[in-house]
Every structure is written in C-alpha cells, then in structure tokens.
C-alpha cells in the first residue's frame, strides 16, 4: 500500500512543484498557452509511442493523421451542423463538442486502421527501410489529398467555443484552454485504464513485449496491431479537433510541424512509454513557449529540434524509456 502510494505520489509531487514554478515564471497567460499546447502534443505523441512500442515503426504519417483529424472535425462542424460562430447555449455546446469529437475520433480511428492494413501490414516482414518509405509516402498522400480538396491556403475553423475567460490568481484564462487540458487528461487516463485493465490492453502490452510469445499465447496479433493504430489515430483526431478550436485556422501541412514536435516529445519521454510521451509533450510545449516569451518565436522549431538532438546524444532512451542499446 505505502510503496504503491509513494510510486504515484512522488512523481505527482514533482510534477506539481514543476508546474507551480513554471506558473510563477511564465504568468497565467503563457502558462495556459503552454499547458494547452502540451495537451495537444501529448495526444499526438501518445500515438507515435504506442505504434512504435508495438510494431517498432516511426509512423511518419501520424502527424498528417492529426491534420486530417482537424479537417474532418472542421468538415463535420461546417457541413453537417452548419456551424460558423460561437454556440452560447452551454448544453448545446457540450453536446455538439461531444458528437463532433466522437465522430472525428471514430472516423480517424478507421482511417488509421485502413492505413495500417494497406500500407504497413504487407511489409511487416520486409526490410526495415520499406515501411519507413511507405510511411513517408502515406504522409504525402494525406497532405496532398487535403491540399487538393480544401486548397493549399489556411482554412478557417469554426470557433464554436465562446472566447470567454475566467480569472485565476490575477490572470485570465479562456475556458477553451481549460477544456482542452481537461479533455487531454481525461483521454490519457482513459487510455491508461484501457491498456492496464482490459483484455485488449493486456494483448497490446504482451504484443509489445514479445510478439511471438503473445501469438503463441493466443493473442490475435493482426487485431491487436489494428486496434493500436485505431487508438493512436483516434487520439490524434481528438488532438486535431482541439487544435482547430485553439488555433482558429488549419492548413494541409500543419501535421508536418506539429508531428515533428510530438515525435520529439515521444523520444524525450522515452519512445514506447505512454506516460513519458505525455510528459514529453508538456516539456516540449514549455520549451516552445519560452522561446516565444524570450522573443525568439521563429526560432522555436530550432529550439525543439536542438532538444531532440541533445536527447539523442545524451539519453537516447529518453526520460522514462528502457535502454535502447547502441550496440544492438
């Protein structure tokens, strides 16, 4: 009981202290921005890390799945519901958000499964380079389908959440930021419960540990991998929707940049480790916000990339990852 409690309490304590320090350093507004960005990065990083954990493939298309998710959410909102501006009725707003999010996650999950089935599964036993190249191909296909369908310029995303703010310790925070962070945390807890407590989650963990042994124990490998891709893409879809709400406009190459940052987050946290991916997402977001606060907004990508290189040099296994021996 006590060690279990300590196992959870200590990291939580460290996290709380770190957040408090960040809050004091950055102030309410920037802190809220960093938390929101971090929530989005974490949602995407989870997908990278889950897929890598189970099939050892860097799914280059994952960032673009996220981008397609934001376009799908936009399309549902504008075309299906005809939304353009804020929805003031709270009940309507919550209902709409729930429906749109559910539909986006379902749709993206199916697309993720489809991509796995068509582009990755046939190459499971091919040389390592082959699935990486198809992944980059899929990434380009997704980008250009969207570019052709919605045009190459930024597209407005309906701002259905009113821009209202509330006071917190002398600063103002938009309800939207709060919503995004809470949503991400809820999804991450749901994922942990799914992986930790359900039969399918157990199948996923055992497949990640040792695919052959899992297969011998009766785990349906194809099904398990497909479900992993479903969940990864669904989380990216949710991330895509909130990205649209947060940024106000979306573009076909959005997934490229955000994907790169989320991947860095996954590596930083220790690729293959879901908790690490979430923590990495927030750290990367803080790095980016610091670059902005210090007046180097255009250099934020360079800063994130430098973090990636430094992690690879000094701690390739990431913060929470297992040792990835350099000699094997």
């Amino acid at each position: 009981m006590t060690p279990d409690f300590r196992r959870i309490a200590r990291p939580l304590g460290i996290g709380a202290v770190a957040l408090l320090v960040e809050y004091l350093l950055l102030g309410t507004q920037q802190f809220a921005n960093a938390m929101t960005l971090g929530a989005i990065y974490a949602l995407i990083a989870l997908g990278y890390t889950m897929v890598y954990g189970i099939v050892e493939l860097i799914n280059f298309a994952h960032g673009d799945v996220f981008m397609v998710g934001s376009f799908l959410a936009m399309w549902i909102m504008t075309t299906v519901f005809g939304l353009v501006g804020p929805v003031t009725n709270l009940l309507n707003l919550v209902g709409l958000l729930a429906i749109v999010m559910f539909a986006t996650m379902l749709g993206m999950g199916l697309i993720g499964m489809f991509i796995e089935r068509v582009a990755y599964r046939p190459l499971r036993h091919a040389p390592r380079l082959a699935p990486l190249i198809t992944a980059i191909g899929v990434s380009f296909i997704l980008q250009n389908i969207i570019a052709v369908a919605f045009g190459p310029s930024p597209v407005n995303f309906p701002q259905i959440v009113p821009a209202d703010k509330f006071d917190l310790l002398g600063g103002k925070i938009a309800y939207l930021n709060l919503f995004i962070v809470i949503l991400a945390v809820v999804l991450m807890i749901a994922l942990q419960l799914f992986v930790g407590r359900t039969r399918l989650g157990r199948a996923m963990r055992s497949t990640a540990q040792d695919r052959e042994a899992a297969e011998l124990m009766g785990v349906d490998i194809n099904q398990t991998i497909a479900i992993t891709f479903f969940i990864a893409a669904a989380l990216a879809g949710a991330g895509g929707m909130v990205q649209g709400l947060y940024a106000g406009s979306i573009k076909f190459d959005l997934g490229f940049y955000v994907g790169l940052k989320a991947f860095t987050a996954a590596v930083l946290g220790g690729i293959g480790n879901t908790t690490g991916a979430a923590i990495g997402g927030f750290i990367i977001a803080f790095v980016e916000v610091y670059a902005t606060v210090l007046g180097y907004t255009q250099w934020s990508e360079v800063a994130v990339f430098t973090v990636l290189i430094l992690v690879l040099v000094f701690r390739p296994s990431g913060l929470l990852g297992q040792q990835l021996g350099e000699r094997t």
Binding site: L57, I58, F60, R128, L308, L312, P316
Partner: peptide, 21 residues
C-alpha cells in the same frame, strides 16, 4: 555523428527535422 549511433529510424526523423531547420 550523434544520430548514426542509434537505430536507423532516428536518423530518418532527425534528418526530417534538419531538412526543416
């Protein structure tokens, strides 16, 4: 130098980033 010590996939993502940077 820092990336080629690691598994091949890392090189792909690092070069992707480098190409952007």
């Amino acid at each position: 130098a820092p990336t080629l010590r690691l598994r091949g996939d890392y090189l792909a993502i690092v070069t992707l980033g480098f190409g952007e940077i």
